[in-house]
Design a protein around this nucleic acid. Structure first.
Length: 623
DNA sequence: GTGTTCACG
DNA sequence: ACGTACGTGAACACG
């Protein structure tokens, strides 16, 4: 049984109450505001409020493609109002013009505080409906994320867990699967019950979560000064979107078709039969049964055929290099070349991804629909895809600004290692510097091999890699790898101390903590299972570094967007890729903007090492 | 819905 | 004897 479960009373199940029922709903007061007269009464009350929860209903899960259907408000537990602006034929609804004119001043008033669940969504919907919102005060989803990133943050789950309340599932209104209705087809009475409930619950969750944040001043500061301001920055990024060279992508698609056809034919030829190359199961049968190649690794579903395995088999059979190439080309074509154009918004002509604030356990953002944080760059073909990201206006350019070695700089900052700090202070090539120390040779005598090995170790350290992993990543024996790591820690004992401190702190407090006091709960640090324990230790270390880097770029994003708005600069933030910000701005002023952007990024948080920002710009994201 | 694979930092 | 480097999202196969 789960801890605490036995103390939890069963959730209050909502009784179904039909729209025309005479039953008095003692438990809540949800009002449908579907006439001008009701609106006036509602509006008289709304005007008196300094803080309220707001929720929008729309025709789409995706904010940039959603049309407004209704708005609900709540400023008192168990009480809420639903204002339909679109309704099925024959049902009363308010005129959008009334809503726009009457509500707009209140929504635009930054002194009237708005509460929402995933309020970034409502910001975008309302802005696209011609009603910009200011005074974004509290997002229940973001608050829950700050308190415990690992839990689920959906409204329904939080209502159940925090309020012991089971809310109406959206499927009760619109169904599920491919025959789903859109919300504008739902009865206004049912829509009211659903939507008003969401606003009500959001307001109740606000009270609950606020109390918990109030008990943790440092988390509260992170929430108020970083995460909440970031909501509006992410809304701006999503609204801005990115522009694509569709012609280039279309041409590439045709060329890649030929490549894939050619590879497929040759693979079938060498295999002696036609099979589905995309099926790891069928591929394994061909490679390991028919062609008698050696199976190197097995997983749950059978013998692995991943890139690492294929690489080791590359010179065993002529089919392997073809499969490696087939995998790369089909991946890039199916995931990017053929998919990105499909996501262009017809209204804006641009692609508007979601930048998710409450997904990762470390504090990083994630991106979806499409994921614009994993656009290829490592191969020639990959870079060609990246060159399809262009400015919409010919006189603009794409400017990319990325932190140089942000995680290693944070490692130097946290560990206070004198040598590493000095190396960064002198703007040395950090991998070369470490190599000269570990191999005990002058900087100019460091070979590419030495530098490359130390680069692998530097990265491995951040992830808590052991001798096995290092030996595999740089192709030396485990014994040699162990010696290498021992030498590294002998030379950089302050790094070992930092890593030990990360684990000890996490053991003592129960969580890893970033530079801005973001927390991640770490369990298993005292597990009897050595593997689980080692993994927990790696998390305790990596979370501090990865999470602090996330903190840093979030602060930079907020400061940059504030400057853009305060000075009304013609600069659009269009992407964040963990240590990189991408902008669309006038090519004629690229140097000028590059300067202040680099300054904002490098001064976001003061560290004991300088923060370096590399900038490039040009007619595409390739620079 | 789960597992495998692979794109990115 | 064990598994082995952190954090994501998407496409595809398969039951």
């Amino acid at each position: 049984m789960k801890r605490g479960a036995k103390y939890l009373a069963p959730p209050l199940r909502r009784g179904f109450v039909s729209a025309n029922s005479a039953v008095k709903k003692a438990s809540h007061d949800y009002q449908l505001i579907d006439t001008e007269q009701k609106f006036d009464e509602f509006f008289t009350q709304l005007k008196k409020q300094k803080i309220f929860a707001i929720d929008t209903e729309t025709t789409s899960m995706f904010a940039m493609r959603a049309d407004l259907v209704g708005i609900s408000f709540s400023w008192k537990p168990q009480a809420a109002f639903y204002l339909p602006v679109k309704a099925p034929l024959g049902q009363k609804h308010l005129e959008s013009e009334t809503i726009r004119q009457k509500l707009a001043p209140i929504l635009a008033d930054r002194n009237i505080k708005k509460i929402g669940q995933n309020i970034k969504y409502d910001l975008l919907v309302l802005q696209n409906a011609g009603v910009p919102v200011k005074g974004v005060h509290f997002d229940t989803m973001v608050a829950s994320y700050c308190l415990d990133a690992d839990r689920k943050h959906s409204l329904d789950k939080m209502a159940l867990d925090f309020l012991n309340y089971e809310s109406i599932p959206i499927s009760a209104l619109i169904g599920k699967g491919k025959n789903q209705l859109t919300f504008d087809m739902v009865d206004t009475a049912a829509a009211c019950e659903y939507s008003a409930e969401d606003a009500d619950i959001t307001f109740q969750l606000y009270n609950y979560l606020k109390d918990h944040l109030d008990k943790e001043p440092q988390l509260k500061k992170l929430f108020e000064e970083v995460e909440m301001p970031l909501v509006e920055v992410l809304a701006a990024i999503e609204c801005n979107g990115v522009s694509l060279d569709t012609k280039l992508l279309k041409n590439m698609s045709g060329e890649l078709n030929e490549t894939i056809k050619n590879l497929t034919d040759r693979i079938y030829e060498l295999a002696g039969e036609v099979f589905n190359i995309d099926s790891p199961k069928q591929l394994a049968e061909i490679l390991f049964d028919k062609l008698k190649l050696e199976s190197i690794r097995i997983g749950k579903a059978g013998r692995s055929t991943d890139a690492g395995v294929l690489e080791q088999l590359a010179d065993q059979h002529a089919i392997i290099p073809l499969i490696i190439e087939y995998r790369m080309v089909s991946k890039l074509k199916n995931t990017y070349v053929d998919k990105l154009s499909l996501l262009i918004n017809p209204r804006t002509g641009r692609v508007h991804a979601s930048f998710n604030q409450t997904v990762t356990t470390t504090g990083r953002l994630s991106s979806s629909n499409p994921n614009l944080q994993n656009i290829p760059i490592r191969t020639e073909l990959g870079r060609k895809i990246r060159s399809a990201f262009i400015p919409k206006n010919k006189k603009d350019c794409i400017l990319s600004a990325d932190y140089s070695q942000i995680e290693l700089r944070l490692l130097a900052h946290f560990s206070k290692d004198k040598a590493l700090m000095a190396a960064f202070a002198a703007d040395q090539d950090i991998h070369r510097f470490v190599a000269s120390q570990i191999y005990n040779v002058p900087i100019e005598d460091v070979t590419d091999q030495m530098r490359s090995n130390c680069k692998a170790v530097n990265f491995g350290i951040i992830y808590g890699q052991g001798a096995f992993g290092l030996s595999r990543s740089i192709g030396i024996s485990q014994t040699e790898a162990k010696k290498f790591i021992d030498d590294y820690f002998a030379r950089y004992s302050s790094i070992r101390k930092f890593m030990n401190d990360c684990v000890e702190n996490a053991k003592r407090t129960g969580y890893a903590e970033t530079i801005l006091h973001r927390r991640r709960i770490i369990s298993n640090l005292t597990s009897k299972n050595a593997n689980k324990r080692a993994q927990a230790q790696r998390l305790a270390i990596n979370t501090v570094i990865q999470g602090s880097a996330a903190d840093l770029i979030k602060v930079a994003m907020i400061n940059i967007q504030r400057k853009i708005e305060a000075e009304n600069l013609p600069v659009k933030l269009i992407l964040q890729v963990h240590d990189e910000l991408v902008f669309e701005l006038p090519a004629s002023d690229a140097d000028k903007h590059a300067k202040w952007i680099a300054k904002e990024m490098s001064t976001a948080i003061k560290l004991d090492v300088p923060l370096k920002v590399d900038i490039s710009y040009g007619q595409t994201w390739l620079g």
